[in-house]
Design a protein around this nucleic acid. Sequence first.
DNA 1: ACGGACATTGTTGCATGCAAGGACTCGTTT
DNA 2: AAACGAGTCCTTGCATGCAACAATGTCCGT
Lengths: 245, 245
Amino acid sequence: MSAPSQVTRALIALRERIFSGALRPGERLAEIPLAEAIGVSRTPVRLALAELEKEGLVEPAPGGGFLVRAFTAREIDDAIELRGTLEGMAARLLAEHGASRALSRALSDCLAEGDSALAGSELTAEALQRYAEMNRRFHGLIAEAAGNAALARALAMVSAIPFASASALVPSPGSSAARHRLLIYAHEQHHAIVEAITGGQGARAEALMREHACNTRANLRLILEAGDAAPPGFRTLVSGRIAAA
Amino acid sequence: MSAPSQVTRALIALRERIFSGALRPGERLAEIPLAEAIGVSRTPVRLALAELEKEGLVEPAPGGGFLVRAFTAREIDDAIELRGTLEGMAARLLAEHGASRALSRALSDCLAEGDSALAGSELTAEALQRYAEMNRRFHGLIAEAAGNAALARALAMVSAIPFASASALVPSPGSSAARHRLLIYAHEQHHAIVEAITGGQGARAEALMREHACNTRANLRLILEAGDAAPPGFRTLVSGRIAAA
DNA sequence: ACGGACATTGTTGCATGCAAGGACTCGTTT
DNA sequence: AAACGAGTCCTTGCATGCAACAATGTCCGT
């Protein structure tokens, strides 16, 4: 239990190589050289590749085996849009069924943490990190509390698509001022979402939550079109543009 | 290419055993006896089990290996509800972007086929089979034409959950009159959905499509609570009730 | 110089063996 | 009779070998 299994070691190594660009989109993933490079036998490599296929990072190649998948910007945009719809459903269900006292408290704690992180005159790396973690927790709480297991699973899967999760494109200190303003706007939306949920306003909560995902889409557009700072691995894995709206 | 691989043979055999009740929910799936029973070696059994985990039919067991998953009625109901939201999004996107002439024609053909299947004074097994296939095509066309790949993938996954797809709970000849009436109602909704899509009415299309999934939920409730005719494998794999709305 | 055929190398799918861990059964002790 | 310990059997994780297939390279003939 404490020692990672060989499959886990292979998974970690493969993910790292994909995100670092050592393995490029379209590249053939051959069991034997990979097993040798990672230091495990072929069996865990094969099982790790099957798992990465499940995660969408690799795809089956003609004639067997796997290729590193290429992600288009369009695909990530699609995933973010889908996440908006799913999170909207979660917020609606939650508003309809009512939030427990404990959940309301947890959501309020998130709001306070976000306010605190954004309170400085400057968005330091530490503040942004705190914000990103708060954001992850906020979205996670809503997904789990909605009470629909299929929905929670679908949200987990769409959030696992590279750069499509709620915190994937949170700006870094070097990002543009436009993205920093967007972050402040996004957190104000968090406040409104909590208000709608605790007030039992299902349609409002859903609409706000869907609109909220548009911030991630705007971040994506700024990275692609204005050359704004991108997260690690983005420039390697993502290609193409988003069609004009 | 023509001969099924050993993994495929193992997948087919395992699915059959699960749906037939030869392997019951909660039962431990041991590689060696299964490999012997199916007539393949352990490697394809292991890969098949990993694939079935991906499909949700089996789950990892504590201490390694897998168990046959039990499905609760609640879980299937959740999945159907999720499908409604996803299909609603698809119909909205389609209405917003406009349906091509070819797609409009294909959807109209589905409507005509459904009308024809339901036209008889009695719903024969053949008529219901034709309806189910038309229904599958209708829903598939909308999912693919929506133009969001992440959405199409999420729909494919939720539809793969046993008994959650659009045609999973289409009645059989021995089903109750209530379910037959529901079928006729559902097909009238198909007409309205196409009208909304081709008319560019995004919000209307979405609302109709979401409501449309409630028919599957109603079918599920009738099977569970009125003891109506259930599809093959349902009584084996599905346990529990749905909470009162 | 180009194309075709053959040989070699690399890779995948699969089978099987080994080691370690967990579960079950049997015997002994309290 | 019940509980505990030891031994045995079953299963999983993993390593490795074999056969078949595909891709690439080389050589020969036109």
